[in-house]
Amino acid sequence: MGTEPLDPGTAMAAYAAPPPRGAAFDAWRTWESRDGADGVIAAGILAANARNVQPWRFTVGDHSTRIDVYADLDRRQGALDPFDRELYVGLGCALENMVLAARARGHRPELSLMPDPARPEHAATLRLTPGERVPSELYDAIPHRRTNRGPFLRQSLPRPLLDEIAALAGDDSGGPDLLWFADGEGREVVARLLVEATEAVIADEGQSLAGHHWYRGTDREIERSRDGMTVDTQGMPPLMSTLGKRLPAPSRRTADRFWLRNTRTVHVATAAAFGMITVADSDDRAQRMRGGRLLQRIHLFATARQLAVGHLNMMTVRADRERELGLPPRFGKALEELVGDPGRQTLVTFRIGRPGRAAGTSPRRPVATVLGTDAG
């Protein structure tokens, strides 16, 4: 049997560091105080997203009963996400939080993906009609969820628990699905390929530069941008994080070497299992968002069970880069072999396990910054 859900006010909070001081972290503290459509959006902006680029913007219309969600194309990752895979996955994560929040707050949400084929940046429309309040442990987990880049305890997870997580995908044969690589040769292959893909990313000048663009090394940078990767979210021991914020920001190459070392010795070495979300067509924007919704559900379920999730998107990042540049599809073929089904494609990969230390809190842009005027 899977583990039982825990009281969200105590157990979940123990596995996430409290938000640091500063306006860049207010979104984590104030999200539940907002009402109506603004409250639903406030939940959405706390969702997981690659490199914390926060690729979303919103408008509210029809007397606050309609929220339109847009891809913020100014927040693309360039060479690290040449076909906007990660961008739309992140939007799907936000949509899952928004749907959960709408239900918990007494709305009946109706979600439409890609409602305007002529405007690919118009990702979704969420309509809110009155309904019963539907609380859930996933909703309760929203403010406690963090992406964890630190070491996990070297403990395996029971197969019934992994099956319980896989069931979050539902039984829609056309929707996203979840593969586990928890033991044996498959797990070893995934671990090796993740390290090799990281080596390939940092050897690619364009990808290395694109990644470093989102690093925020000082409190002033964090308060100004309210996005990106910070010292506190790198999974280091608290003392090292404190020292890291007092020292000059590392060079791009130093940061790359740190990432590679952590990938090899922490991320893959301590993972209890690797998960892979698959879809029928990883280029389809709607399927990307459906996969993102599943990824966020996994995050929240894990949080409620005192587990941790960390994104490991290096193989898909390299596969997309290979396709962009016309390179031999080394990682593209490797992903096909791992999936083993010509009708399914890898969307995202992650690791899961029991956290060895609390995860740091990432900055977030407030609702006022991501909310625009009604598009009509």
Rank of each mutant, 00 (worst) to 15 (best):
Y70A: 09
N49V: 01
A48T: 09
A101F: 08
E86P: 00
L80P: 00
L95R: 06
A50P: 00
G61T: 14
A47E: 01
A101D: 08
G61V: 10
D62S: 13
R105H: 11
F58C: 03
E96Q: 14
N52P: 04
F58P: 06
P82W: 09
P55M: 11
D74C: 09
W56P: 02
R75S: 03
D72S: 13
A102M: 06
R66C: 11
N52Q: 13
D74N: 13
A94E: 08
R108D: 15
P82A: 04
Y70I: 12
A104I: 04
Q77G: 13
L91R: 04
C93F: 09
L46V: 07
G61I: 08
G106F: 00
N49W: 02
V53L: 05
E86K: 01
N49P: 02
R66S: 11
G90M: 08
L46S: 04
Q77D: 13
L95H: 06
V89C: 10
R66A: 13
D81T: 08
Y70K: 10
F58L: 07
T59Y: 03
A101C: 06
A71W: 03
E86V: 01
R75K: 14
T65K: 12
D84C: 08
Q54S: 13
S64C: 11
A102K: 07
A48R: 07
H63D: 15
D68P: 00
F58V: 06
D84M: 06
F58Y: 14
R103E: 13
N97H: 14
Q54H: 13
P82Y: 05
F83C: 04
G78N: 07
R66Y: 02
A47P: 02
F83I: 05
D62L: 10
V89F: 10
F58K: 09
T65A: 14
T65D: 03
Y70Q: 08
A101N: 01
T65R: 15
W56Y: 04
C93H: 06
R105I: 01
I67C: 07
P55G: 12
L46C: 10
R108H: 15
N97P: 06
P55A: 04
A94C: 15
V60W: 06
L87Y: 03
M98R: 06
P82T: 09
A48S: 14
C93I: 08
D62T: 05
R105M: 02
R57E: 09
V69L: 09
E86I: 08
V89H: 11
R57K: 13
F58E: 05
L100T: 03
L46W: 01
W56I: 11
C93K: 03
A102R: 05
L91K: 02
D81G: 08
R76F: 01
A101V: 06
E96N: 08
D68R: 14
W56H: 03
M98D: 02
D74Y: 00
D84R: 04
L100C: 00
I67A: 03
R57L: 05
L95Y: 07
